[in-house]
Structures are given as structure tokens and as C-alpha cells.
Design a binder for these strands. Structure first.
Lengths: 161, 161
DNA sequence: TCAAAACTATTGGTGAGTATAACGATTTGG
DNA sequence: CCAAATCGTTATACTCACCAATAGTTTTGA
């Protein structure tokens, strides 16, 4: 089937190894669909959920910090925050220390919506993680966290990742 | 900080659990960037690589089979195959049994390019998997495969996934 | 002190990627 | 033989990520 001498072995190895990145990308799309479907009934997008999620974990942040924390381009963040602010889920206030900055903080109403959205997100994730045992889920989470910290973590990422 | 009685516990649980899907989606973007960068020098996109990869694994397929195997919309597959066919990397022939179908098969030139691209993909993936030991990589691959088979596998996916 | 440079958020425009709808060509079933 | 279903194709619209440019603010340096 193949006249080349070196191609077959490389191809076989690649079929086993190089599938990991493609698998992750496929799972991400499937996961994103499910999450979006779960959040749709709440009138919330995945990005909006991620914003509230990070703000709840890290406390009030500037838009720049949000931007690099979520890997969302600053220009896209503007409309995102506009929508959330219009719904009263978060508030933008000028930083008194540096009036160029906006301090973005979740409102009590935003916390309520976040809790509801997190229940929906867990439900969506339950199906994704269904084939794994509790122990395996823990290991998977550990692996993914280490990969994310190394590959696109908050520090030490030489290029723009 | 919080006047609600039920929200805090749900929020804490979600912070631990619901992070998995978001992590996968973030890693997918980082992985996609690296893969695209590695394939760019070959003049190949990630989708084109996935097409050759699947065709090499599964043998000749119809465009519909390719479409649901790769989760690429049929209308988007057309231009993708056009480009690959123009480069002589694959061939479309009418299925004699059903002349509506196109049978898509990789050419020898396509196999060569696939082997080259797979080496590039492995190189791109090396950084992604760097923080994991060999044993952990095997476990991760097993987990991802099972999740993909269950969540967006080739069979038994009730809705359109 | 004051002008120049740097930083923050915002706007508008462009391109890639994805989804929907409609259309010929072909097959299938009544 | 004709209506319905299927496969690939085309055209189109929509979302999202990125780049360049702008206004307001702060910092820097002569």
C-alpha cells in the first residue's frame, strides 16, 4: 500500500500520539454546544458565564485582567460587559487610584444568576464526564489543570500564547 | 457577603466541578493555535489535516461520512475538499453503486503530506503534553477517547450533538 | 512645569469559521 | 411514471477573533 520506507512507522506513531490534540478540540466543541444549550434557557452565553465565573473566583478585576484571564480580546470584552451590565449582573466603576481603569464587580443579582448558571453547567458537564469514574475525573481534572497552567497559564507564557 | 442560604454551597461545588468543561475549551484553543502554527509552514489548515487523518485511518469515505466523522458541516466540507483535491492530495470519484455519492480517497501524494503533517502535529503536541508523564499521557488519552466516544462518538448520539 | 510617551477602554472594520436555505442530480418506493 | 428522499453544491447570513485607530488619563523626562 505504501512505497515509502519511513512514512508508515511515522504514520502509525502519529495515529496514536497526535490524536490527543484533535480529541481535545472535538470534545471542546461538543462541550461548548452542551454548555451553550444549557445556558440558552437562562439567556446567557458561554462567555458571559465565564466572565461571572472568573469574577466570582478572583474578586473585582480590571477589564485588562479579565481579558488576559479569559483569553478574550479586549475589543470583544466591551460588548460582553455591556450586556451583563445592562442586565444588572455586574457593575463598572472607575478606579479612583487610576481613573483609566474600570473595576468590574459582580452584583448580588449577578451572584444569583451565576449560581443558577453553575447548576446548569454542572448538569451539562455530567453527560460529558459520564463514562469516567470519580477517581478518573479527579485525575483528568489534575492533568488538564497542569496542562493549562503550563501551556496557557497566567504566568511564564513567552509569546502571546 | 452573601444573604442567600443555598447559593454558596452550590457555587463552591461548581467552582470545583464545572471547571472541567471550561478547561477543555481553553486547552482546545491553545492546542488549536499551536497546531495551526505548526501546519502553517506546510500550507495546511487544521481541518485539512483532520480530513487526511480520518481518511487514512478509515479508508475511502463519502462526504457525508466525512462530515459526521469530523463534525464539519457538509457545506463547509466542499471548499475544504476542493482545496485538497486541487493540490492533488485526495481524489473524488463518483460511487458507481450510487452516483449521488462522491468517494473521497487519499492519493499517494496525500499520504506523503499527511506523514509530514503528523510529524508537525506531534511536535506541536509535545509542548501541550509536556507537564505529563508517559503513564499520565496514556491515561489522559484513554479518558478523552472514552468521553469522545460517549459524547460525540460515531454511534448512538441521539440529537445532532 | 509642560510636552511627549505609555496605558486603558472603546469603536469600527476585516477575515475566518460555522450554520441555514435553496438548488440540481440521483435514487427509492408506491 | 411520479412523488419523496438523499447527496453534494451554492449562496448567504451570522458570530467571533483580530487589527488599527481614537479619546481620556496617567506617567515620564527634559
Amino acid at each position: 500500500m505504501n512505497a515509502m520506507a519511513s512514512a508508515p512507522t511515522a504514520a502509525e506513531a502519529a495515529s496514536a500520539e497526535a490524536a490527543c490534540g484533535l480529541l481535545i478540540m472535538r470534545l471542546a466543541r461538543a462541550s461548548g454546544r452542551r454548555l451553550a444549550a444549557s445556558l440558552e434557557s437562562l439567556g446567557m452565553t458561554g462567555h458571559e458565564f465565564a466572565v461571572l465565573h472568573l469574577l466570582h473566583d478572583s474578586g473585582p478585576l480590571s477589564q485588562q485582567q479579565l481579558s488576559q484571564g479569559l483569553r478574550i480580546h479586549p475589543s470583544n470584552l466591551v460588548g460582553l460587559l455591556d450586556a451583563l451590565e445592562a442586565d444588572g449582573l455586574l457593575a463598572r466603576t472607575r478606579d479612583p487610584a487610576d481613573r483609566r481603569r474600570h473595576i468590574v464587580a459582580v452584583t448580588p443579582a449577578g451572584l444569583e444568576r451565576l449560581a443558577t448558571a453553575q447548576r446548569a453547567a454542572i448538569e451539562a458537564e455530567r453527560e460529558l464526564l459520564a463514562p469516567l469514574s470519580a477517581k478518573e475525573r479527579g485525575e483528568l481534572l489534575s492533568y488538564l489543570r497542569r496542562m493549562a497552567a503550563s501551556s496557557c497559564g497566567m504566568r511564564g507564557c513567552a509569546p502571546k500564547c
